[in-house]
Structures are given as structure tokens and as C-alpha cells.
Simulated assay, not measured.
Amino acid sequence: MDDSLDDWFAREILVHEGALVSFLLRAWPDRAEIHDLRQEAYVRVYEAAGKCRPTTPRAFLFTTARHLITDRLRRGRVVSIEPVGDLDALNVLIDEVSPERRLDAHQTLHRLAAAFDRLPPRCREVMWLRRVEELPQKEVAARLGISEKTVEKQVAKGVRLMAGYFYGNGEDRRATRPAAEVGDGAGHGQQHPD
């Protein structure tokens, strides 16, 4: 199919305008800048698609918007370097990440990754698409060929299992739950396939 870039952009990108604006409203504190952020995201996507069209346009749009927000936040943190006289007189504390905090963050991330890796394959795939790629439940269901209810159950299961592992000192807490709790709801103790 030989589309013009404008047709492709209207069909694959502009249709997500409502979701993009909602995302920007949640992610950016200044509502007055939402229109500019949206337009800048569109410009970046359009220019990139002129070189090579992305295979997943919606994901590319939202990734571009996240990068744009990150760029704006970085620019907002840049401080002009001008002589200010005696720095001690400013009485400013320097907020540096201590080696202990860095190690703690690294260990936490390692435990979180280990908890994620212990999830059953289908559950892990659903969790990745919903929580990391932030795809809507409907899109995850369509992509994986499962029902939205199954997506919902897999996310709940993933959160429960990860929390049990992460906060349970690495133990698999499912083995300690009563049979009726893990059962099919009828009290027979059979594990639900989702």
C-alpha cells in the first residue's frame, strides 16, 4: 500500500489525539503547555516517519511524547552559571545520591526484576505490555488473542505474585494460601487457568 506521509499520519497518528492529550494532562503539570507539547510530539513523529515509518505507530507516538516530556524536564533543571559570590552564604544543601542510596536502589531494582522473571510466561507478557509499554487493556487483548477479562486477571495475578515475592522476602507465598483462596471460587482447590 503506497500511502502519502500525510495520509499515513492522519490514519495512524492523529486518531490517537484524545489519548495523547489525556496522557499529557496526566504527565505534565502546566495545562497551558499541553497544546505545544502535543504539536511538538506530532512534529517529531512526522519528521521521523518521513525517514522511516514506525511499525507500531501508537507506541512510537507515546514514546516520543514521553521523551519530549523528559527533554523538557531536563531543560527546566538547567541552571544558568553566573557568579553568585559566596556560595556558603547561600546556605544551600547539595543533594547528592549517597553510595548507600545508590546501592539500595540497585538492590531494589534487582529484586523487582527477579520477581518479574518468576512470573508465568503469559502473565509476564501481559504485565509487560500493560505496565511497561502502557498499552490499553483492549490493545493487549487484541495483540495476544485473549479476552480483556483474561488481561485483567493476568495483571491482577502478576501484581499479586510480584508483591508476594517482592515483599515476602523472596518466598513464593502461593503455597501458604488456603485452597479455597486459590481455587476456582467453588472451594474445590483447583487453580484457575488464568
Results as ranks from 00 to 15, higher is better:
Glu171Asp: 09
Val78Met: 13
Ser98Tyr: 03
Arg31Glu: 09
Arg101Ile: 01
Leu37Gly: 11
Val97Ala: 12
Ser4Thr: 15
Trp28Arg: 02
Glu47Pro: 02
Val78Thr: 10
Arg130Ile: 03
Asp184Gln: 06
Val92Gly: 00
Glu125Met: 05
Val84Lys: 03
Arg75Ala: 14
Ile34Arg: 08
Arg143Tyr: 01
Arg122Gln: 05
Tyr167Met: 10
Tyr167Lys: 08
Val182Phe: 07
Asp30Ser: 07
Val84Leu: 14
Trp128Gln: 10
Leu14Ser: 12
Thr108His: 10
Leu61His: 03
Pro178Leu: 05
Met1Gln: 02
Glu133Pro: 04
Asp88Asn: 06
Ala89Tyr: 00
Phe116Glu: 00
Ala163Ser: 12
Pro83Ser: 12
Tyr167Ala: 13
Gly50Ile: 01
Ile94Pro: 01
Val155Asp: 11
His110Gln: 10
Asp184Glu: 08
Glu12Met: 09
Arg118Cys: 01
Glu12Asp: 11
Ala59Met: 09
Thr56Tyr: 11
His67Ala: 03
Val126Lys: 05
Tyr46Thr: 04
Glu152Cys: 07
Leu37Lys: 08
Arg102Gly: 00
Arg58Gln: 11
Arg177Tyr: 07
Gln191Pro: 08
Leu119Ser: 06
Arg177Met: 08
Ile94Arg: 06
Val182Gln: 11
Thr55Ala: 14
Pro178His: 04
Glu17Tyr: 03
Arg143Cys: 02
Pro54Asp: 06
Trp28Phe: 13
Arg11Asn: 14
Pro57Asn: 05
Arg11Ser: 12
Leu68Phe: 02
Phe166Tyr: 15
Tyr46Pro: 06
Leu161Gln: 15
Thr63Tyr: 05
His106Asn: 07
Gly185Gln: 11
Thr55Val: 11
Leu68Ile: 08
Leu14Ala: 11
Ile146Thr: 01
Ile69Pro: 03
Pro99Leu: 09
Pro54Arg: 09
Glu40Lys: 15
Arg131Ser: 14
Pro54Lys: 09
Thr176Glu: 04
Leu103Arg: 15
Thr176Trp: 03
Arg102Tyr: 06
Gly164Ala: 10
Val92Gln: 01
Leu68Gln: 01
Glu33Arg: 15
Ser22His: 15
Glu133Gln: 15
Ala32His: 12
His106Ala: 15
Leu61Ala: 02
Leu93Val: 10
Ala156Pro: 05
Asp95Gly: 05
Arg124Asn: 03
Arg160Trp: 08
Ile146Tyr: 00
Phe116Asn: 04
Glu148Trp: 02
Val78Glu: 08
Leu161Cys: 10
Ser98Trp: 03
Asp36Arg: 12
Leu37Cys: 12
Asp184Asn: 13
Arg31Tyr: 07
Pro57Met: 01
Leu161Gly: 06
Cys52Lys: 15
Asn91Arg: 11
Val92Pro: 00
Gln107Thr: 13
Pro121Trp: 00
Val155Cys: 14
Pro136His: 13
Arg74Leu: 14
Val155Pro: 11
Leu87Glu: 07
Arg72Leu: 10
Arg72Trp: 14
Val79Asp: 03
Arg53Phe: 02
Ser22Trp: 12
Ala186Asp: 13
Glu125Arg: 12
Phe9Gln: 13
Ala49Thr: 05
Lys153Tyr: 03
Gly170Trp: 10
Leu93Gly: 04
Ala179His: 04
His192Ala: 14
Leu161Ser: 15
Arg26Asn: 11
Asp71Pro: 06
Met162Gly: 12
Cys123His: 01
Glu148Tyr: 00
Val92Cys: 03
Gly168Leu: 10
Val132Ser: 09
Arg101Ala: 12
